[in-house]
Structures are given as structure tokens and as C-alpha cells.
Amino acid sequence: MTTDALTQPADSRSMGSLLSNIFWGTSLRAKVTAGILILLVWQVGVTLFAPSFVATPIGVALAFPGVVTSKVFLIASKGTLLAVFQGLAIALVFGTVVGVAMGRMKVFDRALNFYVSGFYTMPMIALLPLLTIWFGYGGDARLATVIFAAFFSIVINVRDGARSVPPEYLEVCKAYRAKARYVWFDITVFASLPYLIAGFRLAAGRALVAAVIAEFFVSLQDGVGMFVLFNARNFNHDVAVVGVVALVAFGLMFEITMNWTTRRFFPWYRRETKAD
């Protein structure tokens, strides 16, 4: 058992690097070939063995232009994206404040750590029935779910970051007699930025999931989740898959935006983490 546990990480690492070589290495051709192969198997498999309403790559591709320009879809996308962005913004601000407080003051940490960890691990779907009663069957319940899903991963990461501020920075602060607000919201926040970004990434993924689940549960008309559900139930599976693809695209867009933002506004960020 113990030897297994010891050897496994090494194995999985080499496995991981192998996989990443296949997918992200120079072998673009292999990647494209694999993609085409998967689509081909999907197309042929469905055509041969599945009922006609099941989505096929060609069906999805044909449905795509019509769907992404349709009013219903645009309203649904706007609803989901707005809820995710609002929720993330609120979670980011309050999560950072609470995380910094916990990281810098033992009292807060002792008082809150247990609950924050608890809520972080709790599946937010379990809370949905309650949230709908508190916030009604509408957009508010979705926003609340998103905030709830995003908040704790930001708190946990910022807390860890705030606890690991290099002692040299704090020594400089003390020597220059920095007021607490500078120590907290300048030095601590920026020194924990790598943690904050990691937490925010995690939060964004959770927020998108939360928004879609809330839309399922609340039957929110202006949501991509509901768009997918509605079309799936009406046997428009090609259209439903376009909705799913849109959700994937939202996630990728977020990643790209994050990368651009860190590069543009925190030019020192990557250099700093690389040097460590």
C-alpha cells in the first residue's frame, strides 16, 4: 500500500506529461486527427444505432448559425453571463475582504475557518431549495447561488495567500510604520495575488455550474441552462448541444480574458511566480 502511494504520483506525472504532449505538443496534426475521428465515430454511431432526434456533429453544425443569432438564445446567454459576472464580482470583493481578515487576524481565522471550510465542501445544489424560498423563483435565486458557489473558494485561497505573505514585506511595512489599511489591502492583497487568481479561476468554474443548475431548478427562461433543458425535452437535441457548446465557450472566454488581464495589468506576475 505504502509503496503504491509513493510510486503513484511519479507515475501519474509521467502519464500527465505524456498526455499533455499529445494534446498540447507540436503534434497539431495528431490533435486535429483525433478530433475528426471522435466526431466521425459520433456521427456514424448515432446515424446507425440511435433514434433520429439524437444530436449529431453535422446536425449541431447546421443548427449553430441559426441558434447563436436567435433572440431566445441571445437573451438566455445574456441572462447567464450577467448573473455569473455579477455574482463573481460580489464574491470577489467580499471574499477578498473576508479572506484577508482571516489570513491576517487570528481571531477571524479561529472563528470562521471551520464554517468557511464547511460551506466550501458543501454541494451548493443542496442549498438550492432553501435559496429559492428565500429569494423567490427568479433571477435573485440564481444570483445568490452563483455568489454562494464562488465566495468560499475565493475566501479560502485569499486566506492562504494572506497567511503566506513573505515576512520581508511585513518587516518593511513595520519599519515604515505602515497603517493597517496599507498592510491589509495593498501589501497583503498584492502579495496574495497568485492565490487570489487561483481562487478566482476556481470560483468562475463553480459560478458557471451554479448558474446553470439554478436555471434548471428555477426554470429561468433567460438562462442557457434552461435553454438546453427546454430543447432537450422537446427533442431538439442539436439545438441543445449548441447551448452546451456555448457554455464551454464561456469558460474558455473567461480563461482567455484572465490571461490577458494578468498580462496587461500585472506584468510582474508571471515573472515573480516563475522565479520562485
Binding site: V172, A175, F190, W268, Y269, R271, E272
Partner: peptide, 19 residues
């Protein structure tokens, strides 16, 4: 008992903030 005005320290670790 604590850092005082008019006294400055130059740290061996530079103490610069990377951001």
C-alpha cells in the same frame, strides 16, 4: 520600542515590492 521617525533601514533582502 518601535520604529521611529527619522530612522530608515536599508534591508539586505532589498524589501522591494514586485508589483
Amino acid at each position: 520600542t518601535q520604529p521611529r521617525e527619522g530612522v530608515s533601514m536599508v534591508f539586505q533582502h532589498f524589501g522591494l515590492f514586485p508589483w
